[in-house]
Structure formats: C-alpha cells, structure tokens
Lab assay of single mutants.
Amino acid sequence: MTFKLIINGKTLKGETTTEAVDAATAEKVFKQYFNDNGIDGEWTYDDATKTFTITE
C-alpha cells in the first residue's frame, strides 16, 4: 500500500510517499524521516486516505 506524508513545517514543506505493508510500518518510516530532517510537530493520520500530516 502507498502512504502519503504531507509536511507543513516552518522550514520544510512538501509531500512524499512510501510503500508499506500497513500504517504502523509507514509511521516508523515517516518518523525516521522527521528525525533525519529535524522536523518536530503535531501529526495526524487519516486512514481513509492513508495520509499522515505533520505540522510544526
């Protein structure tokens, strides 16, 4: 399955996707992406659209 990440950061904005077997696996991938890029904020997940959103 394809999961999308929408980034609404102070310095970084955009979208990316990842292929994962489930939302929990995608969450781990995206959290690592947050850490690697110094993004910290509030994030949500919409199961209907398989979209994670992080807002700094």
Rank of each mutant, 00 (worst) to 15 (best):
K31G: 02
F3S: 01
Y33I: 07
D36A: 11
T44W: 08
L12Y: 15
K13Y: 11
E27Y: 15
T25M: 13
E56I: 14
T49C: 03
N35V: 14
A23T: 05
I39G: 05
N8M: 12
F34E: 10
E27H: 09
E56S: 05
E19Y: 13
T44L: 06
K10N: 13
E42C: 07
T18I: 14
L5C: 14
K10Y: 11
F30G: 01
L5H: 00
T51S: 04
I7S: 03
T49S: 09
E27F: 15
Q32E: 10
T44D: 07
F34Q: 15
V29S: 07
G41A: 08
I7W: 11
I6R: 05
E42F: 10
N37R: 13
T49F: 04
G9E: 02
E42S: 07
A20G: 03
D46P: 00
V21E: 10
N37S: 14
E15S: 08
T25W: 07
I6S: 03
W43E: 00
T51W: 01
G14F: 15
N8H: 10
T18H: 05
A20Y: 03
K13Q: 10
T17I: 07
T25N: 08
F52K: 00
G14C: 15
E15D: 05
E42H: 11
F30H: 00
T51P: 00
T44V: 08
M1A: 09
T16C: 14
N8D: 11
K50R: 13
G14W: 15
T2K: 08
K50T: 04
T2R: 06
N35G: 11
V29E: 06
T51D: 00
A26F: 02
V29L: 10
N8R: 12
N8F: 09
T49W: 03
Y45R: 00
L5K: 01
E15H: 06
G9V: 15
I39S: 04
N8W: 09
T55K: 05
V21I: 12
G41I: 08
A23V: 10
D40T: 14
D46T: 03
G9A: 06
T53G: 02
Y45V: 00
G41T: 05
T51A: 02
W43L: 15
L5W: 02
A26Q: 01
I7Y: 11
D46N: 09
V21G: 06
L12Q: 10
N37D: 06
Y33D: 04
G9F: 15
N37K: 15
T49G: 03
W43A: 02
D22R: 01
M1Q: 13
F30C: 03
T17P: 02
I7V: 07
T11K: 08
